[in-house]
């Protein structure tokens, strides 16, 4: 269940319009600055795929000048919560099917 936050810089004069567009998207919560041309955005989705899809939609909004991610957590209580599951070398052959992992394990008995 990914939960991420961003600072969103709108194009000049488009803060309100952008805020409305973001607020209308499911999974988005927006907090506009009271005295500056920026917004805070928190996205709350139920899967990595949904999160990626939402982010792509956000990035596609024409009134965004810059989108800066400041926080990202995948709830560790959920199965996909361990990033190592995606990055550990036991998974690497899955990520990189064409790459044979280097022979690393010692076979001898030392202890």
């Amino acid at each position: 269940m990914p939960l991420c936050s961003y600072v969103v810089i709108p194009r000049f004069g488009q803060k309100e319009k952008l805020g409305a567009a973001l607020s209308s998207m499911e999974g988005c919560e927006v907090l506009p600055a009271a005295n500056a041309d920026l917004l805070l955005l928190v996205t709350d989705t139920d899967s990595l795929d949904t999160d990626a899809e939402l982010r792509a939609r956000v990035e596609g909004l024409p009134d965004i000048q810059a989108l800066v991610m400041t926080f990202g957590e995948i709830d560790p209580d959920t199965p996909e919560g361990d990033p190592a599951g995606a990055s550990r070398r036991r998974s690497l052959p899955v990520i990189e099917p064409g790459v044979a992992p280097a022979p690393r394990k010692r076979n001898r008995t030392n202890v």
């Binding site: 269940m1 939960l3 991420c4 936050s5 961003y6 600072v7 919560e29 907090l31 506009p32 600055a33 009271a34 005295n35 500056a36 920026l38 805070l40 955005l41 928190v42 709350d44 800066v68 400041t70 926080f71 957590e73 709830d75």
Partner: peptide, 29 residues
């Protein structure tokens, strides 16, 4: 609630970052 806590933490991180861009920024929250 843990989810609510994470949500607030996420906002806090974003607000902290925003404050480095605009030191006097306020959100009225």
């Amino acid at each position: 609630d843990r989810r609510e806590f994470l949500r607030r933490t996420a906002f806090m991180s974003a607000a902290s970052a925003a404050a480095t861009m605009v030191p006097e920024v306020a959100f009225g929250a």
